[in-house]
């Protein structure tokens, strides 16, 4: 009896215990055609720490808005074809093809339907701080991030950690994440404000 109870409990618990990060990533992408969240970003490097926060909106495939609102106002918009970066205080807009945009924002990575699985080799990375983690290593070496870690719980992305080859580590915490909220199409277009230079790369 005792033995079978143990076996039964293992059977019941097994699906929860094995809610590893990669299946959670797949479920997260499959369950959400649109996404909204707020984020808090901390960049640490030798002798410095820079914090910023803002909001994220995504409509798959390929559309996103990644806005910084503290301590500065910067908008990064992927409209499906182009990437736009607008910094209000600099009064400058730059635009470039979206396919060159992956390193510019994790939103570009998250907005692709299967960009993560296609362009990165995924590996389970265990449990830490109550989250299940995976590592994503770029299949092609590129000049952006050397490694990416993503932390999940409840089939939802909670944290990301990005490291570059110079020793910078960026931690992004997502809060108030909503799956499939209605988002106006206008959030994924960008019209340069009057009096602002538009530069192309």
């Amino acid at each position: 009896m005792k033995k079978s109870f143990f076996a039964l409990s293992m059977l019941v618990l097994a699906p929860f215990a094995s809610a590893a990060a990669i299946p959670q990533l797949k479920a997260f992408v499959a369950e959400s055609r649109t996404l909204s969240a707020s984020f808090h970003q901390t960049v640490t490097a030798k002798g410095k720490r820079d914090e910023a926060q803002g909001t994220l909106e995504i409509a798959r495939p390929g559309k996103f808005r990644w806005n910084y609102n503290k301590p500065y106002d910067q908008q990064i918009v992927g409209d499906g074809k182009k990437l736009w970066i607008y910094d209000r205080e600099l009064a400058q807009v730059t635009t470039k093809p979206l396919d060159a945009a992956l390193g510019s924002s994790p939103a570009a990575l998250l907005a692709g339907s299967n960009a993560i699985e296609r362009d990165y080799t995924l590996k389970e990375a265990g449990t830490q701080n109550g989250l299940e983690w995976l590592t994503a290593a770029p299949r092609k070496s590129e000049n952006t991030f050397e490694s990416i870690r993503m932390g999940f719980s409840g089939n939802t992305l909670r944290e990301m950690e990005l490291a570059d080859s110079f020793g910078n580590v960026t931690r992004i915490r997502f809060d108030n994440l909503k799956k499939n909220p209605p988002i106006a199409a206008s959030h994924f277009t960008f019209t340069p404000p009057k009096g602002v230079d538009v530069l192309s790369e």
Partner: peptide
């Protein structure tokens, strides 16, 4: 448009240019 981080001392400068996300 890029972010930067500049550590200056009379004898030494380190100027890093990064993406908005810190790479």
């Amino acid at each position: 448009v890029a972010n930067f981080d500049w550590q200056h001392a009379p004898e030494r400068d380190t100027l890093s240019v990064t993406t908005p996300v810190g790479s």
